[in-house]
Design a protein around this nucleic acid. Structure first.
Lengths: 192, 192
DNA sequence: CAATAAATTGTCAAGTATGATAATTTATTA
DNA sequence: TAATAAATTATCATACTTGACAATTTATTG
């Protein structure tokens, strides 16, 4: 019998290192050499486990979106019955939830995906799921609201969320966060 | 006397080509070779006119933000007296204004700027100016509104605007645009 | 026309990222 | 212990990108 495969562990190791390098050096600077060093592995092991550079980035994107979906669902699961939407806002706009690390990883991967139709489609569908999931929570919070209003509010909250995340990643110092939360609450008032 | 300098024309040529290559090949793929080919110039002329790669990207960012400021001011100048804010919304969210080209250029340049503190600061201050300029227009449209409300609405409209732009650049097919406009109008209602 | 200074061209060297492959080691099971 | 198949290591060749510099051409002015 063969030696047991470490592929899944090694893959995670490599993708973790990939994320760190994307954050630290950007898409251009995230070379296989640096990733291998970060992971504490020989560069040849990258090829052995996750294929070439494009394969690696694709795997990174897959894992990122899957994880993000899970995290969002987990967050939904912890929302209280009353004040559901307000708490959702607070959590979404809390920098602890969407940290600068994830933002920069997403930006790098999105940038990479932009001119690869299949990867790009993955980013788009992930965004759509995000909006839909928020709209679904709004339905739970405001059962009597109109679906079109919920779509509008969900789209806006998502937009605010991503803008806030980008600006935080760039190091914006102003209170965009407070404004975003205030705006989000006003939007929720549309549904009440 | 010397031969007349073509530096400004050549620089524009090169930065135009840079933008095209950023859109077409991304930050990584925008090599000096491709840019030179796109501009119809020898690669050495890039160095001669705009310095090394970082110098070129910095010039590209400077020009982009300056142009964007001008365009926004020009747009403000054409707004009517009545229904000022509503028309502003319509124009901002019109894909003809913020086209996919500009979006991808901005994303590439922002990505490049992310780990260069001075360039990053430029992006941040540009964003701040954008929000402030929108808030200023809201003051013209709603003289009796509260400043904090105007800030909130301006922040949100900007967030929607950038999200919409990103999604359009990724090729999102859904009617995020309509939702954004609808949400923007609701936000304006806050100020009336 | 001569002088000037810039544009333009041509070429080279160095560094680096990547892909590929062979050789070796290791852990498991029969 | 032998066989198996995977992990791991070592190494090479190739292509690509960039930076640098010398040589040449060109347009303007005195």
């Amino acid at each position: 019998m063969p030696r047991p495969s470490l592929k899944s562990e090694r893959t995670d190791q490599i993708l973790d290192a990939l994320e760190i390098c994307l954050v630290r050096y950007g898409l251009e600077g995230a070379t296989q050499e640096r990733i291998a060093a970060q992971a504490g592995l020989a560069r040849a092991l990258i090829r052995h486990n996750v294929g070439n550079r494009d394969d690696m980035l694709r795997l990174g994107l897959d894992r990122f979106t899957a994880r993000s979906d899970e995290q969002l669902q987990a967050l939904f699961g912890e929302l209280p019955e009353t004040g559901r939407a307000e708490v959702l806002l607070d959590w979404l706009f809390d920098p602890r939830f969407f940290d600068a690390h994830s933002v920069r990883v997403l930006e790098s991967l999105s940038h990479w995906a932009a001119d690869r139709s299949d990867a790009r489609a993955l980013v788009v569908s992930w965004t759509e799921r995000f909006i839909d999931a928020v709209a679904e929570q709004l339905l739970l919070a405001f059962p009597n609201s109109k679906a079109s209003d919920r779509d509008t509010v969900a789209t806006c909250i998502t937009g605010l969320y991503f803008q806030l995340a980008s600006l935080l990643a760039l190091g914006l110092t102003r209170s965009v966060q407070q404004r975003s939360v205030a705006a989000g609450r006003r939007l929720l008032a549309m549904l009440a």
